[in-house]
Amino acid sequence: MIKVDGISKQFGKVKAVDAISFEVQEQENLILLGTSGCGKTTTLKMINRLIEPTAGNIYINNKNIFEQQPEVLRRSIGYVLQNNGLFPHYTVAENIAIVPQLLKWDKKKTESRTAELMEKLHLDKSYLHVYTGELSGGQQQRIGLARALISDPPVLLMDEPFGSLDNVTRSNIHKEFKALDELKRKTIIMVTHDVQEAFELGDRICLMDKGKIVQSGTPAELLFNPVNEFVKGFLKDQRLQLEFKAVKLHDLWELLPQLLKKTEGRSLSSVIDIWTALESFKFSGEESISIINHEGDQKQVSFEQLMAAFYQYKNKQGHE
């Protein structure tokens, strides 16, 4: 668990971060969202002490990070940068092995862990001994991720990790990112200015502006209960898509028609969002899809039924 308590950072007269507080639960994925200059990156970098705050405290698992040696602290926190920050004079293997080397792992352990990660990240073994400059942007970003994950740190900080990728590569990596079991165990704080990405990857979102947190909550909370015009305005673009992404099938469970008959074959899990469910209509070409919730109950819905439930849900949210 990460607890940020009244943290501030002042650069000269400018307050980059102004006494903000938030908590991130274990294995939660928190997104710091905002425009450039809102203080989100500064906030992130204070958590591994790349930037020292002017005031406030940060606790990771109830330990004050300012009472630890910064180098030791950093070795226990994974960090992924926008421009990947890979060492151009190191091979892929050497880049991934930076932290193990600092932690003085033996060579065997490093090698087997590297091989494991390479496989999980769909990186070919033949890349191990090439220099990083010869790889594509997507591959470099995967290696950046492998480097951050190698020592299996409980906390992962990501500074616009997919910001420099093209849309196609980015949406592929998003899928892998969500599917990666390694990441499901981690407490992650990710900075982004991309609303779509925030909604797709975040469990919770802190929307920041001018060094302060304007609103924090689940994507649906931000979308359906914005605290002010700023939040509303920020989420205005492609709102329908955001709504489809923010709402999960289990949110609609009660609104969906009762099960008529059990079906055999594949069922979708109710944790997926509506966007994904709609996509599955399109790809499967079926009249209806089957959904199963975590209790094992099953429901069968058609496209029209799903949309009807969604609008019912949306209306309810708005009036709360």
């Binding site: 920050g85 930076i98 932290v99």
Partner: peptide, 27 residues
């Protein structure tokens, strides 16, 4: 030397001498 490479080196937990000898000077 690319600022993001330096930042990565620090963020990985290198101390200032390691940053100098392993990253800055070679590059």
């Amino acid at each position: 030397v690319d600022a993001s490479v330096k930042e990565a080196a620090v963020a990985m937990g290198m101390n200032k001498w390691q940053v100098l000898f392993k990253v800055e000077l070679p590059l």
